[in-house]
Amino acid sequence: MNIDLLIKMTNEIGDFFAGTAQPEEAARAVANHLKRYWEPRMRAQMLAYYEQRQGAGLSDLARSAVALLAAGASGPAAGAPLPAGPGSGAPPQGTKA
């Protein structure tokens, strides 16, 4: 995904929570928001970016939040297997190769 957009989104989430609490608590709120509302591959991309670029472009609060996320979470990869249960039935006829 477009990392610049993810950075912008994270900073804007930070802008809101910055006004609601002290920095440490606000960082936890931002991290929690990312955990609750961002799909794992978005978080994974942000975490990868954070590791590679030390969160350049992120506000201090956003960077702290991503650091918290990096310390405690990582989502499953996008290419996980098909679900177990009835939904994993064999593809119907006519499936493309």
Binding site: E39, R41, A77, A78, G79, A80, P91, G94
Partner: peptide, 22 residues
């Protein structure tokens, strides 16, 4: 029948190729 079958098979083909979350 053909439309539904094609749609379902394509969904499964894409998931097989690109992953469940695709």
């Amino acid at each position: 029948e053909e439309a539904i079958g094609y749609a379902a098979s394509e969904i499964r083909r894409v998931q097989t190729k690109y992953g469940r979350d695709s």
